[in-house]
Every structure is written in structure tokens, then in C-alpha cells.
Simulated scan of single mutants.
Amino acid sequence: MAKPNTRPYSRYGLEAAELLGLLIHDARTERGLTVAEAAERAGISRGLVHRIENGEMGCSIGAVFELAAIVGVPLFEPEPSILTRHLAAARSKLTLLPKKVRKSTKAVKDDF
């Protein structure tokens, strides 16, 4: 059962989620995949597929991105190598920040 929506969302965010859901639904039906087949391939429930396709905001972004990738909806760039280059550029930009701002890469010893 989905959690009740108690958080207010912007109109832009709601419309973006609805549009992405519709794109995923259209791509799934064009590929001839049933909800059950798409859910199985993504490793999620059929109910979550329905919620994603309905544009509900409480869905896990990982599940939405995985389902979009499975049905062939491009999220950023149609060419995967372009996405990889953008990601590398963003990561290199973060290395320019002072160490204080960056995430720590040291392993935390929590075995007391």
C-alpha cells in the first residue's frame, strides 16, 4: 500500500513525474511488454510499475530510472557515451572543491 501523499510538490515536479510516467507507459506498450513482464525485468512489483506510470511522486528514483532504461526511455541523452562524458565532467568538477566539502573516502571503523 502506498504512503499517503502529505508533502506538497511543485506543479513543475508533478507534471515532470506525470510526463515521465506516460513516456514509460507508452514505451512499454510499444515494446509489447505487459506490466508483469516489465516488473519482473526491473525486479519490482506490478503495483510499483503502475504507480510509476501514473506519475506518483513517492516512487524510488532508482526504480523509475531502471524501468525507464528497460523500456528504452532516454533520461538524459539518447547516446549513453554522452551521459558517461557528462558524468566524468561533473566528477572532475567536484575534485576542484576543497577536501572539506567533498565526501570522505576513508572507511569508518565502527567495530567497537
Rank of each mutant, 00 (worst) to 15 (best):
M1T: 05
A2H: 02
A2Q: 13
K3S: 12
K3R: 08
K3M: 04
P4C: 06
N5R: 14
N5Q: 14
T6I: 06
P8G: 00
Y9K: 05
S10M: 10
Y12I: 13
Y12G: 08
Y12R: 13
G13Y: 12
E15N: 11
A16C: 12
A17L: 06
E18W: 09
L19K: 15
L19H: 13
L20A: 12
L20N: 00
L20V: 05
L20I: 06
L20C: 07
L22H: 14
L22Y: 08
L23H: 13
H25I: 03
D26P: 02
R28V: 01
R28F: 04
R28A: 08
T29A: 01
E30G: 02
R31W: 03
G32Y: 10
T34C: 01
T34D: 06
T34E: 05
E37Q: 15
E37K: 10
E37M: 07
E37H: 07
E37P: 03
A38C: 05
E40L: 10
E40Q: 13
A42C: 00
A42Y: 00
A42D: 01
A42G: 03
G43D: 02
G43P: 02
R46N: 15
R46G: 15
G47F: 08
L48S: 11
V49E: 01
V49A: 04
H50T: 15
H50R: 15
H50M: 14
I52Q: 01
E53S: 04
G55P: 10
G55I: 09
E56I: 05
M57C: 04
M57K: 12
C59P: 00
S60F: 11
V64A: 04
V64W: 01
F65I: 09
F65L: 07
E66I: 07
V73G: 00
V73C: 02
V73Q: 00
P74S: 11
E77S: 09
P78H: 09
P78C: 05
S81P: 05
L83T: 11
T84Y: 07
H86N: 11
A88P: 06
R91F: 10
S92F: 11
S92L: 11
K93V: 09
L96I: 03
L96W: 00
L97T: 08
L97S: 05
K103T: 14
S104M: 06
S104L: 10
K106M: 12
A107E: 10
V108M: 12
K109D: 15
D110V: 09
D110S: 13
